[in-house]
Simulated assay, not measured.
Amino acid sequence: MYTRNLFPRDLFAELERLQRDMQQAFDLSIRGGARGGFPALNIGSTPKSVEIYAFAPGIDPAAIEVQIEKGVLTIAGERAEETLPEKAMLHIGERFAGRFRRVITLPDDIDPNSATAKYRDGVLHISIARQEAAIPRRIAIQ
Rank of each mutant, 00 (worst) to 15 (best):
R4G: 05
R9Q: 15
D10L: 09
F12E: 13
F12V: 11
E14K: 06
E16Q: 09
E16L: 06
R17Y: 08
Q19D: 07
R20T: 12
M22P: 02
M22T: 14
Q24D: 13
A25I: 00
A25K: 11
L28A: 07
S29P: 00
G33M: 14
A34P: 09
A34E: 13
G36S: 03
G37V: 08
G37F: 10
F38Q: 00
P39H: 08
N42V: 15
N42G: 15
G44P: 03
T46N: 06
T46Q: 03
K48R: 12
S49M: 07
E51Y: 07
E51M: 12
I52L: 04
I52P: 09
F55W: 05
A56N: 03
G58Q: 05
D60G: 06
D60V: 03
D60E: 11
P61D: 05
P61R: 10
E65G: 11
E65W: 02
E65K: 15
E65Q: 12
I68M: 03
K70L: 08
A76E: 04
A80Y: 01
E81S: 13
E81C: 05
E81D: 11
L84R: 12
L84E: 07
K87L: 11
K87N: 15
L90Q: 14
H91S: 09
H91L: 10
H91W: 10
G93F: 02
E94M: 07
R95A: 05
R95Q: 11
F96T: 01
F96M: 09
A97H: 06
G98W: 01
F100H: 05
R102L: 04
R102N: 12
L106D: 01
D109P: 04
I110W: 02
D111M: 02
N113W: 03
T116K: 09
T116L: 05
A117R: 09
K118R: 15
K118L: 10
D121A: 08
S127T: 14
A129F: 00
E132P: 01
E132Q: 13
A133C: 02
A134N: 04
I135H: 02
P136K: 01
P136G: 02
R137Y: 00
I139L: 12
A140W: 08
A140M: 09
A140P: 05
I141K: 05
